[in-house]
Design a protein around this nucleic acid. Sequence first.
DNA 1: ACTCATACTTACACAACTGTTAGTATCCTA
DNA 2: TAGGATACTAACAGTTGTGTAAGTATGAGT
Lengths: 118, 118
Amino acid sequence: MSKIKENSTHQANKNSLGEICAEVYAINLLSGQWTLAICCHLFEGRLRFGELKKRIPQITERMLTLQLRKMEEDGLVTRTVYPEVPPRVEYELTESTHELKPIFQQLQAWGDRHKARL
Amino acid sequence: MSKIKENSTHQANKNSLGEICAEVYAINLLSGQWTLAICCHLFEGRLRFGELKKRIPQITERMLTLQLRKMEEDGLVTRTVYPEVPPRVEYELTESTHELKPIFQQLQAWGDRHKARL
DNA sequence: ACTCATACTTACACAACTGTTAGTATCCTA
DNA sequence: TAGGATACTAACAGTTGTGTAAGTATGAGT
């Protein structure tokens, strides 16, 4: 993404809320535009960069790279580079992220119910 | 917030993902900077604008107003205005939002575990 | 020598979100 | 007549997130 200014009020508020509330922290990790979509495709198993790109046609290479890098930094995915040419890079969810699956299912169910009520 | 340009690529992507995936839709509703904090305080019961402000000292009046308005629009809170002077306005979570409580608890537990692993 | 495939990176512009400061309306009380 | 209380609103600026377009390195295959 763009460089983050750690001394901005915005960032300071975000950080302090995330430190106090673990649920805020969790939502912060998941609120990237493409994060959930990537997770959903990786629930099935590890995928290469290009395979993810094909499964999420609307995403640009730039955003896919940025999101995966952030997810790696946040401990949501692991990145494995195979020293081949042309390069091969595989992404896989961490244990931690797999544990989110039941929560996602509940969020999905809630989302459907909530949509229906509006 | 600022006016949203519905014809932007960004917004189009967000919308289409939210329509396909109910969990993306759900996260989109909850990803405002102060949304979860407000929810947490309202889980205990209805509160006035000023009471929320006191409980979330870092928030500005502007952001509190904007977030509550968006949450109202999204069906997360109800807003009741009492025709008094000085004005009294109370906010309360909708049924739908109360149903999120167990999911929040799981997210919180996950967040704590995940933090510990990093 | 030239193309191809893959997984990026860079530079730029725009969109969306948040923060700062100052102001508003209303009636009640002193 | 002035000040206080409440729940806002407006104008502006800054920060963060996203999209567009173009370019990079590498070795294998032709």
